[in-house]
Amino acid sequence: MIERLSIFAVASLVMVVSACSPRQGAVAGDPFERVNRGTHAFNKGLDRTILSPLSKTYTDVVPDPVENSVSNFASNLSLPGKVVNNLLQLDLSSATRNSARFVLNSTVGLAGLFDPSKKIGLVEKDTDFGETLQGWGVAEGVYLELPVFGPSNLRDGLALFVDMLLLDPAGQILKPPVSEYRTASNMGAILQKRQIYGAQIDDVLYGSADSYAQSRLVYLQSRRFELKDIANDAYIDPYAEFE
């Protein structure tokens, strides 16, 4: 029953997203800019008052090897969900790679605290349901800034919830207290990431004249780059403008 419900949810989601999306090749518009700017102000406040200072304290107090193990633990438990997406994309080689990583790191890597796979060149092939939808021909849709989660678009924003609620085997199997450790480790991973990319994030949020517009640009361009979305290559030809 749950399975059938999931398939139905996914199918109707695809239809909704397709119907709302601009045609391939078009630059995503931002019809919700006013709302998005409000959300951006909220998110920026959240970063300034909580995320950024907490990240600094966390990375100052916790020794690096512990930080890495916390992030490894979180990342390892996200692998089954990625394998599901690899399979939905019919990408068997990445599915095999991510599965092998999960098995090796869960055993030899002591429940994922360590990353022996990396030492033998078995690196993760990151993916998500947004990429799966893209493979199915769904365009990115309008730009959205989500509360807490930050910059996104209609396709990838909805896909984020599908990944969390429907396509996460670890989340469905794990029981407390392990599921609680997982939540905590996800938080730790976010705090560590905020520190690693600190200079770039601070640049966009606090060093630019319009942090909303700059973070929208950075998100859209890096997401398209990540998904090799060549149809949306909207880079500027400066010579054409002055011809």
Binding site: S208, A209, D210, A213, Q214, Q221, S222, R224, F225, P238
Partner: peptide, 16 residues
């Protein structure tokens, strides 16, 4: 990594 200097500067200079 996909992020264009020209696009970023257009946003930045436009905002300034």
């Amino acid at each position: 990594e996909g992020i264009s200097l020209l696009s970023s500067e257009r946003v930045e200079i436009g905002a300034l």
